[in-house]
Design a protein around this nucleic acid. Structure first.
Lengths: 112, 112
DNA sequence: CAGTTAGATAACCGAGTGGTTAGGTACCCA
DNA sequence: TGGGTACCTAACCACTCGGTTATCTAACTG
């Protein structure tokens, strides 16, 4: 996998378990144990997923006695939407109409 | 890699070469050769990237004599932004203010 | 202290990735 | 018909990924 920030973020999101973890964290911080509950997989597996999310900057991990509470950090998701927004005109009808309008304007300019 | 649609899309986007290909296709259809130009890699490597993009539904490939023109299909990107929008309140200040407002309303309700 | 709980690390495995080179297919053109 | 161009497939390589079990550390609790 490439190691530029956007690629790291996309790669981290390319797994339903990790997206479910983020969805859970959207409701508030949680311990590793709590995050593991919904999944039929071992602790170390969840640990690995969390490390991927941490490296992508999507979560931060604190410390409270023997617990390591995870909290969501959605900043990288903003970059994701900003990137995808560059393609909005290809699916958004209103943007498509605006594109067509600008195209007509440009053609009028060219007529001069 | 998981094979659900969203994971497939995210995985396809987790590579700068593939994102550059999509950016190029945003300016119009292109042949495999044209898409290869900017990259210092062999033809088969580009072919593989295109196959990943095709499996993710991000491009479609036509046929014109010995050329296989690629065109962009951004529909999966809409799903991406829709998913990320579920987290918008964690980075968007205006949404954060709305959240706080709703929270205060809820507290007032609880006082009754 | 011993025992339990939360969690990380290490070593391993099968499958997939991203690249290569070599060779094959399909089409156009002289 | 023969040659060049566009593209794909096959086989291979080093590496990563997502999972496992076994083992370790760190902290609380009796």
């Amino acid at each position: 996998m490439a190691d530029d920030p956007l690629s790291t973020t996309f790669a981290a999101l390319a797994d339903p378990t990790r997206r479910a973890i983020l969805a859970r964290l959207a409701e508030g911080a949680a311990t590793v144990k709590e995050l593991s509950e919904p999944f039929a997989m071992s602790g170390p597996a969840v640990s690995k997923h969390l490390r991927v999310l941490e490296r992508a900057g999507l979560i931060t991990r604190g410390r409270d006695a023997q617990w390591r509470p995870c909290t969501l950090d959605a900043t990288p998701l903003r970059e994701v939407t900003e990137w995808a927004d560059g393609f909005r005109r290809f699916w958004d009808d209103s943007h498509r109409r605006l594109d067509a309008y600008l195209e007509r304007m440009k053609e009028q300019e060219d007529d001069h």
